[in-house]
Amino acid sequence: MKIVLLGATKGMGRALARRLAERGDALFLLGRDPSELAAAARDLTTRRGPQPGSVSEVRHGRCDLEAPDGFGAALDGASAALGGLDAVIVTAGLFATQDRLEADAALRRRLLEVDFVRTVEFCEAARERLLAGGGGTLCVFGSVAGDRGRKPVCSTAPPRPGWPPTSRGSTTASTRRDCGSSR
């Protein structure tokens, strides 16, 4: 598959990208920090090793959830590099603890903006491109850690409940994966 990942330099995104790379999928990483992206791409390329018949090098480009004007260009660049898009996976987002959010209204607004509004906008840009290419899979990671009301995890803003609207999520102890497939 030809897969774009936003936010795969750390955490669950990193773990998923490694599995996809070893499976032989063609990957393109999007994220904020060029040196982190380059290191992640090198890690994935080396882990995959030489695989006959597939693109072995993982490439990357800049995309910041706080800069929505760049969403379209970033996805177009990734699509051009991969020769099309089969899936877009979003694991990026802001994280803050309850005490920090209670103390800092600006941080609270920024987190809501990034984890909800900007994520939806990015998904819209991805959806348009997937449909234009005949369909694909859009996969957005969220978390229900906040729903459990456990300090210090944020309970005011469980990231992205109910998005995308076609969600077929499964809930586990700590995470929820919302996958909307338009194929």
Partner: peptide
Amino acid sequence: DRVLAFDS
């Protein structure tokens, strides 16, 4: 735990 380089 990133692999930074490997020379086969």
